Amino acid sequence: MTPDDVARYVEALPQVKRKGTEARPAWYVRDRLVARLDEPDTLVVRVPLSKRESVVASCPEGFGVPPRMEAHHKVEAYLDRVEDAAVRTAIDLAWEMQSRP
């Protein structure tokens, strides 16, 4: 999945707004982070802690949780190593979590 593919997918979700910069775009629902491109091939996705292990287990070479994110509801998706469907699933989990009242 390319950064442009990510942008098209997440921006098609209801109530999502793009923020951030050109180099580091981020997508939010009601000012709550859904995803942010940290590097050209690394997407940070906010997922529920209860689902994070299953996201990583679905594609261990494509997702990771660096030490700085262990206490947070976040996972890194390495876009050059993960299947598009797995990224979309992680984004959907983030969107569902952030869309709740």
Rank of each mutant, 00 (worst) to 15 (best):
V65S: 11
R36E: 10
R32W: 11
A86Y: 09
H73L: 11
V29H: 14
E96A: 10
A12N: 10
L33H: 03
S50T: 05
E61G: 12
L43V: 03
S99F: 12
V45W: 00
E76F: 03
H73Y: 13
T89C: 07
V6A: 01
E70S: 14
D84S: 08
R8I: 07
V56L: 10
M69G: 05
E11Y: 09
A77R: 06
P3A: 07
P14L: 07
V16A: 01
H73N: 14
A35H: 06
A57E: 15
E83K: 07
D38G: 12
R100L: 08
Y28D: 08
Q98C: 11
V56Y: 13
R36H: 13
V55R: 01
P3E: 07
A12H: 13
V44F: 01
I91K: 04
R81E: 14
D92H: 09
W27R: 01
E22T: 15
S99R: 15
A85V: 09
V45M: 00
E83M: 05
E83D: 08
R81H: 15
K17G: 02
V55L: 06
P60D: 02
G64D: 06
A77V: 06
R68N: 14
R81Y: 12
T89D: 07
A77L: 04
R30I: 07
K17H: 11
D92S: 09
V47H: 00
S50C: 03
K51E: 15
K51A: 12
S99N: 13
E83A: 09
V45E: 01
R46M: 04
T89S: 07
R24Q: 14
V65G: 05
L49E: 15
P3M: 03
V34S: 10
V75N: 05
V45A: 00
P67A: 10
Y78N: 14
Y28C: 08
L43E: 03
C59H: 11
G64C: 06
D38K: 06
A90V: 08
L43M: 08
L13P: 12
V87S: 01
V82D: 00
L43D: 02
P3D: 08
V47T: 07
A90W: 00
H73Q: 14
L79E: 04
G64Y: 01
D5F: 02
P25E: 10
A94V: 09
E76R: 03
